[in-house]
Design a protein around this nucleic acid. Structure first.
Length: 120
DNA sequence: ATGTTGACGCATG
DNA sequence: CCATGCGCCAACA
């Protein structure tokens, strides 16, 4: 796969830096990497994670060492319901394990959990 | 090469 | 609030 392209690696690098209990949005990551990849492209980068490990820049990226669950959409919700590789509630459970609270609509308060430090 | 699809976002009605 | 359309970029048939 061509998931070792610089833009994809940039996504992985940023996602790996997200601290516990914090999250980033797809659009934000897209902006952070200088729009080299659109929000959809970010989604594709993460989509390539499950299954086999991706090696780039001498580092190995995999769903096990990349906190993909800390990436949410702009509504503070999740969109993993369409994906068969991952159970629908997996992301929610992983985030809850880090202290993120959800309302009855499975949405979070982005303002409280957004990783502001990463935007510097 | 072309059309379709997708872990998305934003503007518009 | 919900539905649509458009932009976006990469993978795939």
């Amino acid at each position: 796969m061509t998931t070792d392209s610089p833009a994809f690696v940039s996504v992985y690098e940023i996602v790996c830096r997200i601290p516990r209990g914090k999250v980033l949005t797809y659009g934000l990551i897209s902006h952070l990497i200088g729009k080299r990849l659109s929000a959809q492209g970010v989604g594709w980068a993460l989509n390539a994670l499950p299954g086999s490990a991706k090696v780039a820049n001498g580092k190995k990226y995999h769903s096990q060492n990349v906190p993909w669950h800390r990436v949410v959409n702009s509504k503070g919700g999740m969109s993993t319901h369409k994906i068969i590789d991952i159970p629908p509630d997996m992301q929610k459970q992983l985030l809850e394990a880090e202290g993120v609270k959800f309302d009855n609509e499975d949405k979070m308060v982005l303002d409280d959990y957004l990783w502001h430090e990463g935007l510097v």
